[in-house]
């Protein structure tokens, strides 16, 4: 266990709404730490639609997901937020002194006055491929990521997918595994052309197998995989293997936050519309993750929620400071914080 990081606010989720919350909280001198399971800021904007235009951001007739994230990062830079990427929040408790403790799956502890859940659709996790009965093999023969390459030494490995993860691991694990078979439903790939060329060259040399097809079922006993059934262009075949790495992209799950005891409404976190506070005082939820009557899952709604949440969070964190509402246009003190004075 590490020494706890002391801060004002912990924001769970570094998507557009979590990022804008840094700005609003920063205007009230609240220091923020953000935790995100992805390796970069932006959430869905960066992961799902970086290139796609958004048309309903006020004053931006058209802006791409990635450009919006870049602008937000620029806007919040004066407040020097600290990011903890590739982390999932694993623990949460209220401390005796009234503050909160948030724990990450890497064992970091953060202590704060307020927790802001801005987790969008939940945390991105590997998608389970639509293969009946695959659960039985998960963790013993089927893995969704490679933690240590050595675990695949001497194994007959089946890799499924057509993106960068599937191709990269085909190339990297080939020298380690006993055999590698790549299965993809078509001969075209989403992965970088260079990796695809390398893969085809390896196949030419007889170092790996590539099979066009879709995995329809698995064979084995007691979680030990022995073969995968594959439907290919020439009919059904069995491919012998004892390890499988499916790469079917990411899906979003609420994750451990679901166990915090917060009131929920159809997998969303119920909040009030004055402070966007959850059923636990001091814990707020903003953006797509929350629910209240009339809720719209729009980025602009999340921005509004961030501003109102901040009023409550600031009172909580600075109970002895009189809150003064000011405009960035005219307030010299706010402009100093923004570094423009």
């Amino acid at each position: 266990m590490s020494t706890p990081i002391e801060t004002d606010v912990v924001i769970i989720g570094a998507g557009p709404v979590g990022l804008f919350a840094v700005f609003e909280l920063g205007l009230y001198d609240l220091k923020c730490h953000l935790i995100d399971i992805l390796d970069r800021p932006g959430g869905q904007c960066a992961e799902l639609y970086p290139e796609k235009p958004i048309y309903d951001i006020p004053a931006w007739p058209e802006i791409s997901g990635q450009a919006l994230v870049d602008r937000l990062m620029e806007q919040i830079s004066p407040f020097k937020p600290e990011f903890h990427f590739n982390r999932m929040v694993s623990g949460f408790r209220k401390l005796d002194n009234g503050r909160f403790e948030v724990e990450t799956d890497e064992g970091e502890l953060l202590h704060c006055h307020a927790v802001v859940i801005a987790a969008g659709g939940g945390s991105f996790q590997p998608k389970r491929p639509p293969v009946p009965g695959i659960e039985v093999y998960e963790g013993t023969s089927v893995f969704y990521s490679v933690r240590r390459m050595e675990e695949f030494r001497g194994k007959d490995l089946l890799i499924v997918g057509g993106g960068d993860s599937a191709l990269d691991w085909t190339l990297n694990l080939q020298p380690v595994a006993k055999s590698v078979t790549l299965v993809h439903r078509r001969p075209d790939f989403r992965a970088a052309p260079d990796s695809v060329n390398k893969m085809f060259a390896m196949r030419e040399e007889g170092k790996i197998n590539f099979q066009v097809g879709q995995v329809t079922g698995l064979k084995g006993e007691d979680g030990q995989l022995s073969a995968a059934m594959v439907k290919g262009p020439d009919g059904d075949i069995d491919i012998a293997c004892d390890r499988m790495l499916p790469f079917f992209g990411l899906t979003m799950k609420l994750g451990p936050i679901a166990d915090w005891g917060l009131n929920q409404h159809e997998n969303l976190i119920a909040v009030d519309t004055e402070k966007f506070e959850t059923s636990i005082p001091g814990v707020f939820a903003i953006g797509d993750i929350n629910w209240y009557p009339g809720k719209l899952k729009l980025i602009l709604s999340g921005f509004h929620e961030a501003a109102l949440m901040t009023q409550a969070a600031a009172r909580l964190a600075r109970p002895d400071t009189k809150m003064v509402f000011q405009y960035t246009t005219s307030s010299t003190s706010l402009q100093k914080k923004l570094g423009v004075q």
């Binding site: 639509p130 057509g162 879709q214």
Partner: peptide, 11 residues
């Protein structure tokens, strides 16, 4: 869309 269909079931 063809790329996205890689994630679908029984294509």
């Amino acid at each position: 869309e063809e790329d996205m269909l890689d994630f679908a079931y029984d294509v």
